[in-house]
Design a protein around this nucleic acid. Structure first.
Lengths: 147, 147
DNA sequence: TTCCGTGCAAAAGGTTTGCACGCCT
DNA sequence: AGGCGTGCAAACCTTTTGCACGGAA
């Protein structure tokens, strides 16, 4: 499982770390190509998956047709705007509470939890004014909040 | 926003309701084709999205290359086995706790939460014996559990 | 009769992969 | 020198869409 050190892989990782946020494979490709014009999209994907397997990156799939990548950091959660697609980190003091939930889930029936996912789909502050114009769903999902 | 009643749409919904679990568009297509051999996959997709917009179905995207559909029921969560792909409902008394988390998130910065998602990726009891043979990740994700 | 919903097939779009070459070790 | 990683392009796979026909209202 030992891998060679290549300029492409380093450039890809540097770019993601310098950017800091959530990026798609194509965005990463565009950014790194500025310095490595011959970089191929296939190489980007191969390296992103390799780095994810090594734990350096996390893959984020919110059901938005593309996969996002970010550097691995302390566990946190995401607010995903369904109108503009922006993804923010949710900086919330919810870790303790979630830890209890995870423990209970793990004990429930022998399921080994490797990755808990807590994310919120909705509308960001900037998009709330546009909300009525942006083809809202026929039925809002607010009812899901009636826990 | 009023839609016609068609045999195809009814058959699709009946099939999902009778099955009860989580199905992909292709699985639904295969099942319904038994009775409606000329049903096209495009029609399945169009009806699934329509029913989802109406709130009858939920779309579930776990980042597994396909989207799953299920009938809308009380809020619940999922245990997704990364080895066999099986999806179980997580029947856990965690609603109260999550409600508090959601409320705090909603108040945080004006983000309108429409759909909270709490799901767990891991290994199901049946797959735990095979786990070591099934190309485990180079780094496990257990560290994410150190909340 | 109207026109929405369907079947069919092609297109779209993100991601993966086969192959030969070149660079890292 | 050996073989892994790359560039390139084609393939893949799920999902979407254009078009003309048929059926619901």
């Amino acid at each position: 499982m030992n891998h060679r050190q290549t300029k492409q892989r380093q450039a890809i990782l540097d770019t993601i770390e310098r950017h800091g946020g959530h990026l798609t494979a194509d965005e990463i490709h565009q950014l790194v190509k500025r310095r490595h014009p011959r970089l191929s999209l296939g190489t980007v994907y191969r390296n992103l998956h390799l780095l994810a397997r090594q734990g350096v990156l996390c893959e984020l799939d919110f059901g938005l047709a593309v996969t996002y990548f970010e550097t691995t950091k302390a566990p946190h959660f995401h607010l995903i705007c369904r109108i503009c697609g922006k993804i923010e980190d949710a900086i919330l003091p919810i870790e303790r509470g979630l830890a209890a939930l995870v423990r209970r889930a793990a004990n429930a029936d022998g399921f080994l939890i490797e990755e808990p996912r807590l994310d919120f789909i909705g509308v960001c502050p900037a998009c709330r004014p546009k909300q009525s114009h942006a083809s809202p769903p026929e039925r809002t999902l607010k009812s899901l909040l009636n826990f």
